[in-house]
Amino acid sequence: MSELFDMPSDLQNSYLGLVALHLREALLPVLAGLLASLPIAQLCVRLRWLYPPVLWVTTVLYAIPSLAFFVILIDYTGLSELTVMIPLAVYSLVVLVPAIVDGVRSVPQETLAAATAMGFGPVRRYFQVQLPIAAPAIIAGLRIASVSSISLVSVGMLIGNQGALGNLLNSGMIYNQPRLIWLSVVGTAVLAILVDAALIVVRVLLTPWMPRSTSARRLTAKEATR
């Protein structure tokens, strides 16, 4: 059994070590992307004209190949994890910014008016009303960003030992060992599925106020308010 998970020594890591590295390199950029997206999205909500150009910029950034990012970044951050994570964080913006903007915009006008009329200042209103109500949309964005980030980490192997399970795939091909290739591919897929499931659990825990079951029930609740 232990032979199944034996790693080539040039990876300088156990299998679990690679998995942990993979997770860190995939999820820290999403977290950073979220922290950057919140103020950017808030600006886009406040200044409507800003949203289309911001969307355009995030899309263009997403279209830049990671290799091009690496070439530029290596001069500054070297062959480090950071060189892999910075492009991933930038890529996450293309999903997260629109998710947050749409989520915050979906807060009903009367809810906002009621909050203002009750004496919520803009900051309090943002944190206590808009963000919580946008949470489901934001988490939906996080799910896509996380899964795509997990699959993208592998390209880190282009700059040495920073591709985690991607390096394992590479080793499998070089040493002609299908076992390593399977471990890499299946491991990446399982990671993606588990992270996605974890985010669903987080959403359910954070939003006890959402209609649980079908969309039909949500419809009746909406009709009831009419």
Partner: peptide
């Protein structure tokens, strides 16, 4: 402005309740 608003109750069409808070916490807002 916020002191003024907190001294005036406000009721709106469709109620404008905070969908993420319980009924009790909605009422306890002000």
């Amino acid at each position: 402005v916020n002191t003024l608003r907190r001294s005036m109750g406000y009721v709106i069409q469709n109620a404008g309740l905070f969908q993420h808070r319980t009924i009790l916490d909605n009422i306890a807002t002000v």
